[in-house]
Design a protein around this nucleic acid. Structure first.
Lengths: 220, 220
DNA sequence: GTCTATAAAGGGATAGAC
DNA sequence: GTCTATCCCTTTATAGAC
């Protein structure tokens, strides 16, 4: 890393080797961290700035408002999930194999980008409780649409698995919800251990997926 | 009911047939109602007062602060869950039968006190990450303890089911987390339909429990 | 026991300096 | 591109009237 956030902030100018896109990224990551730790309402723009070692001026330069900042974090979270799961969903194998792979990829996202993913969860509440003004209704609708597309990957894979005989659920839509519920909850209780490696996370993800997909009852 | 909240508020005195404990209950119920409708962060003390047809003076007379009010609501939410599941956990039947009954009871709580339960699970995290001062540390610890006791009901039932051969999971603790994750998520996506009855909810709860406990793979 | 009025603090957003 | 200073509104909490 060429320079810390503090260095950049106190210098007042962006170093030549830091692209404008990356400066914006830094603000976005700081916001995700804050939203996860304190929730949306209790996160102030000052908190986000403080996490950057900067002041509000920098945050407002990159994002018009607090809702705007939240929406961008939400969108990024969705992009991460989609890029992780879509290739698996479109790949080869039985329905069960694809679902298994998607579930593992989803779980790893919950572990490795949990600040973004927790913020994503809050977005649902914001939508349902009307926590932001009606002027943002349209933006929220669009983000909810993204979520629906992602969920559809799972619904369709369930349907494919039923068709090829490798999956058995009474209702693909309900199955998608309970599966994603179990996996999304990982972002609530999981926290990385010191010295943890990618291998450890993959192993844990596999154990989680095996537990959930296999069910809890003893096999007759 | 002898008098409405509005009547009491405008009279300025408590009727002789209303015990002080019940007056406090009314405030608590109003707070719970607000937390259910708007979530914790978006609820102001004025909102609670408004729901009572009163002003803040009344709320602050019974509860020191907003965190105090939150803690009391949290405790009530835990009581609801505990009273629903503890009898089933202590009842008869195989481990699988008890777990099944507990899961159904838990799911019904998620549906019927939806936002209430969401405030419960999400709200504690916000406090744990240190938004409030150390003066609430003790109260917070106690509430976390209640949650642990509740989760233990499920852990122990998993262990019992493994012992009697009706359940099969690699790790009871992990199984508890994925199961409660799937069920807690119901509070995120569920919303009651117009004209919905208790019977509809029970049927849906049973379908959810069957999907989760049975697993998603086709049985060989 | 509840109300009105108000103090004190926090936080969103903007303007203009550098 | 970031900072400082500031406006204005909301919210928590308290003081004292009734």
């Amino acid at each position: 890393m060429p320079a810390s956030a503090q260095d950049i902030a106190s210098s007042g100018i962006a170093p030549p080797d830091t692209a404008p896109q990356d400066r914006r990224e830094e603000v976005l990551a700081a916001a995700a961290e804050c939203f996860m730790r304190r929730g949306y309402e209790q996160t102030s723009m000052d908190h986000v700035a403080e996490a950057l070692g900067a002041t509000k001026g920098r945050v407002y330069h990159h994002f018009r408002s607090k809702p705007e900042l939240f929406f961008q974090v939400y969108r990024r979270a969705m992009d991460i999930l989609m890029q992780a799961c879509e290739p698996v969903a479109a790949g080869g194998g039985t329905g069960e194999q694809r679902l298994s792979g998607m579930a593992k990829a989803h779980t790893l996202c919950m572990m490795e980008t949990r600040t973004f993913q927790r913020t994503l969860t809050m977005g649902v509440d914001l939508y349902r409780f009307g926590g932001t003004g009606p002027e943002h209704k349209a933006a929220l609708e669009e983000l909810m649409g993204l979520r629906f597309v992602y969920e559809d990957l799972f619904r369709h894979t369930f349907a494919a698995g039923i068709a090829d005989g490798t999956l058995a659920v009474p209702d693909p839509s309900l199955a998608m919800r309970t599966l994603l519920g179990a996996l999304n909850w990982v972002a609530v209780w999981y926290s990385p251990r010191p010295g943890e490696t990618r291998q450890h996370r993959e192993r844990l993800a596999e154990e989680i997926v095996e537990t959930v997909l296999g069910g809890y009852r003893a096999k007759a």
